[in-house]
Write a protein that binds this DNA or RNA. Structure first.
Lengths: 144, 144
DNA sequence: TTTATTTAGGACATTTTTGTCCTATTTATA
DNA sequence: TATAAATAGGACAAAAATGTCCTAAATAAA
């Protein structure tokens, strides 16, 4: 569904959000550890998220990544996916046709629209805050 | 959503089904041309579909690919996707966790299940016959 | 029987994705 | 001020996906 980069990105952002709600900044090392992701690769992804203003990075000793508390409930999964994978989740034909639309559709065009709208809707309505719920109490997990 | 190989595979199988309903066997060359797919790569994919009994291949002059008419309405998209991409569309966590289930779910587990069930249902209920409808009359397309 | 046509399959090539490593820069703190 | 800790970013490496090419085998038809 998503690229590996995007999966790591969502997990990383979610963990940063969780820690930010506790008023804590998190190092790359901890993020990678707590999301079971490759450190250096995660670093690249966090650079992208930082450039896209989804997370803030602070260099130097006691630096790390954080998200302003007031932003945790406004940032949607769709923003993270867009920052990393672009809009190919939305546009792009299910059968790979370069052009596929209502006027000249592929055989599964209408059916795919339904599924993609579901995905789109989910991504656009799920906030980082919502992602963090359950993590603290062990109802949901970011690794294993 | 699917791999390129899978997209080509669905397009190829759909075209073969269309031709088979007309009582015609189709050469690799024609399939690639009519689905705008790379010839040699499509050949590999058709080998897989042939091994999985989704299409039948006939070697030699006037050979090619075909699907028994009686099978065109029983073969589902899910079988083609499974033959090429395996079951990763079904299993596999939205956030890439190796293990993710109701007992130890990722934060989007439940939401993903809904979307994936939609996709799964679509693949399991759409037959090749249904895929061919509209092609002859120019309502749907397999290329461009 | 020879030839032309067509798929099968192995080997190879290219591109994209995923992942690592090293150096520079920034910053807190001793 | 020196040092240690941390991100930024470029270069490189490995793996996977995508795609090509060539030869062998099968088959219809001349």
């Amino acid at each position: 569904m998503f690229s590996k980069a995007c999966e790591y990105g969502i997990r990383a952002a979610t963990y940063i959000a969780l820690r930010s709600l506790e008023g804590k900044r998190t190092s790359l090392k901890d993020i990678a550890k707590e999301t079971d992701s490759p450190v250096a690769f995660t670093a690249k992804i966090l650079q992208q998220l930082s450039k896209n203003k989804i997370v803030e990075s602070v260099k130097g000793a006691s630096g790390g990544f954080e998200i302003q508390k007031r932003n945790v409930h406004t940032i949607k999964l769709s923003q993270i996916v867009y920052a990393i994978d672009g809009d190919k989740v939305y546009h792009g034909c299910g059968l790979g046709l370069r052009e596929c639309n209502g006027a000249k559709p592929c055989p599964v065009h209408d059916k795919f629209i339904g599924i993609r709208d579901g995905l789109k809707n989910m991504l656009e309505t799920t906030t980082l805050l919502e992602m963090t719920r359950g993590l603290e109490v062990g109802l949901t997990y970011l690794k294993r």
